[in-house]
């Protein structure tokens, strides 16, 4: 089944997809920005500063989702002996890191009017910073290790250690007394967020997901061309 996902076979799709994803991203982002900045109501406690949520929360969600996917792909690469999984994981990492940085910076900006400080060594914020360090280690490992087998082992190890941090990020607000508020959206139970705020949040999440897909496709195509460049050298 995995032969269907061989780079040579899917390049014709991945090479044409970015322009369509780009159009869709701009469309969804435009709607999301209007909803987030103009149409959505202000919060009764936080006033307009609540609007930072529409960039902070989707960025955090996507950065966690990407790291989990990278770990799953790296492990699958070993289980199914398919190098393409590693290539997909490597192509996902840059957007994951950027979303992680966005979550940290926008969280810091949100913290100033809400908590009165730009930064606190709070469990949620610190664990998000640790995730950014794992992303950086993962990307650096791809750059510094020349030996292919070695880089696959090292990057997989980094993701295995890094994935331990994901449940810590998720439950840090429940396990410890933190400045960061508990989750307002629960899949398993009732969410405490009003629908007028949930809608822009979902639209912005969709826009961010489309952007990470766009960057993934561009990076993946670049990696495939790099492989083909090496193939030409061997001819």
């Amino acid at each position: 089944m995995f032969k269907l996902f061989e780079p040579n076979k899917i390049f014709s799709i991945t090479s044409k997809a970015p322009k369509y994803v780009m159009v869709l991203f701009i469309l969804v982002l435009s709607i999301g920005l209007v909803e987030a900045l103009i149409l959505s109501p202000e919060d009764y406690k936080q006033s307009h500063s609540v609007r930072i949520m529409y960039v902070h929360v989707p960025a955090a969600w996507i950065s966690l989702g990407i790291f989990s996917s990278i770990t799953l792909l790296s492990l699958s690469g070993y289980v199914f002996r398919n190098k393409n999984f590693f290539l997909i994981a490597k192509s996902l990492a840059p957007s994951g890191l950027v979303f992680n940085i966005i979550a940290l910076v926008t969280g810091s900006i949100w913290g100033k009017p809400t908590w009165g400080t730009w930064w606190a060594w709070d469990a949620r914020i610190t664990s998000m910073l640790i995730l950014a360090i794992f992303y950086i280690l993962y990307l650096i490992a791809w750059r510094i290790y020349e030996d292919k087998e070695q880089v696959l082992k090292i990057t997989t190890l980094i993701t295995i250690f890094g994935i331990i941090n994901i449940p810590i990020i998720k439950y840090s607000v429940d396990w410890w007394n933190t400045l960061h508020q508990p989750a307002s959206i629960n899949i398993m139970s009732n969410s405490s967020i009003h629908s007028s705020m949930l809608l822009p949040l979902m639209i912005m999440t969709a826009a961010f997901a489309l952007f990470s897909l766009l960057i993934f496709l561009m990076k993946y195509n670049t990696e495939l061309i790099k492989l083909k460049n090496k193939g030409l050298d061997r001819l």
Binding site: S47, R51, V55, A59, V98, T106, I109
Partner: peptide, 21 residues
């Protein structure tokens, strides 16, 4: 829209940082 009850600087800088990234 720009001032946002005094929170404009925070909101606009968060959105600008995101789009710039």
């Amino acid at each position: 829209l720009l001032n946002m009850n005094g929170y404009g600087l925070y909101v606009w800088s968060a959105f600008s940082f995101t789009l710039l990234s």
